[in-house]
C-alpha cells in the first residue's frame, strides 16, 4: 500500500509543481494519473522514489516513511519500487539480459555487479521474466537492436526483476503506436493483477487510461482535481482537468483506432 500525504514540491526557480497532494493506493490497484503537460505528473511520480526531492509532505510505502530516509536506506527502499520510463531508458549498449539484471543492482555488491557475477537465482528469475514479456529469444541481443515495443517490455522486465512492492510508470506508451500501446498497457495491468502490485501510471492518453485502469487521478497545476472511477470521467470533469476541448471528437477518433486495430487483428488471424 502506498500513502502520499500532503506532498509539496517547489523547484528552486519558485515553480510550484505539487501543492499538498494526498492519496492512497491499496494493494493491486492500478491508478491512471492524467493531466495536461506541466501539471506535475512527472514530478509526483519522481517524488515518490525521491529521484526528485519533495519539499514537504510524506510518502509511505507500507509502513516505511520514504521521505525521511538517509541515502543508504533510501537505496534499499528504492529496490522495492520498480520504475518504467517513457523512452524506455534502457542502457542502450548493454544486452537485454544485462538490462534486466540491472534491476538486481540494489541487492548485489559493487564487484559482483562489475564482474556480472549475479546469483544463479537472479539469472533464472531474469529468464522467467523475459519469457513472461515474450522476449526469451532476445536475451543476448543489445538493447538498441530492439523495436520500441520490445524495449518497453525489457523495461517492464527490469522493473519486475527488482521484485517490487510498487510500480511507478511514466508515460509508458508515449513513443509507441496505438496497437503496441494497448499491448503494453494490457501486459502491465495483467502483471499487476498477477502480483497484486499497486501501480501509478502517468498517461497522456485519456481513452487508454479509462480502458485499462481501475481508478483515475486528475492533476491540474499541481493539485488533484479529480479522483474516482474511470466511468465517472465525463466531459465536465475533463474540461475541469484540461480546459475547453471537443471531447466527443477525441472519443470518436479513439473508437476508430479501436476498429482499425480489430480489423488488423482479424486480417492477421485470417492470414494464419
Amino acid at each position: 500500500m502506498l500513502t502520499v500525504d500532503a506532498l509539496t514540491k517547489t523547484y528552486k526557480t519558485g515553480d510550484k509543481a505539487l501543492k499538498s497532494v494526498s492519496f492512497t493506493v491499496p494493494k493491486g490497484q492500478v491508478v491512471g494519473l492524467i493531466g495536461p503537460s506541466g501539471a506535475g505528473k512527472s514530478s509526483l511520480i519522481r517524488c515518490i522514489n525521491r529521484l526528485v526531492e519533495p519539499s514537504e509532505g510524506r510518502v509511505l510505502l507500507n509502513d516505511l516513511n520514504i521521505t525521511g530516509l538517509p541515502a543508504g536506506e533510501l537505496r534499499r527502499a528504492r529496490r522495492r519500487i520498480g520504475m518504467i520510463f517513457q523512452e524506455y531508458a534502457l542502457v542502450e549498449r548493454l544486452t537485454v539480459m544485462e538490462n534486466v539484471l540491472s534491476g538486481r543492482l540494489g541487492y548485489v555488491g559493487f564487484w559482483r555487479s562489475f564482474l556480472r557475477q549475479f546469483a544463479g537465482d537472479d539469472v533464472q528469475n531474469a529468464f522467467r521474466l523475459l519469457d513472461r514479456v515474450g522476449l526469451i529469444d532476445h536475451a543476448d541481443k543489445r538493447a538498441d537492436a530492439l523495436s520500441g515495443g520490445q524495449r518497453q517490455r525489457v523495461g517492464i522486465a527490469r522493473a519486475l526483476a527488482q521484485d517490487p512492492e510498487l510500480l511507478l510508470i511514466d508515460e509508458p506508451t508515449a513513443s509507441l503506436d496505438p496497437k503496441t500501446s494497448r499491448q503494453i498497457m494490457r501486459l502491465i495491468v495483467e502483471i499487476c493483477e498477477e502480483r497484486e502490485l499497486p501501480a501509478i501510471i502517468n498517461i497522456h492518453d485519456v481513452v487508454l487510461a479509462q480502458q485499462f485502469t481501475q481508478r483515475i487521478i486528475g492533476l491540474k497545476a499541481g493539485e488533484i482535481v479529480f479522483d474516482g472511477a474511470p466511468e465517472l470521467l465525463d466531459e465536465s470533469v475533463l474540461t475541469r482537468i484540461y480546459g475547453e476541448e471537443d471531447w466527443t471528437a477525441m472519443r470518436r477518433a479513439a473508437e476508430e483506432d479501436d476498429h482499425a486495430e480489430r480489423d488488423a487483428a482479424e486480417r492477421m488471424a485470417g492470414m494464419i
Partner: peptide
Amino acid sequence: SQTEAIEATGASGGQ
C-alpha cells in the same frame, strides 16, 4: 534517463 533508470533500481553510486 539511462542513468536515472539505474539509480531508480536502488543501485549505489559506483554501480
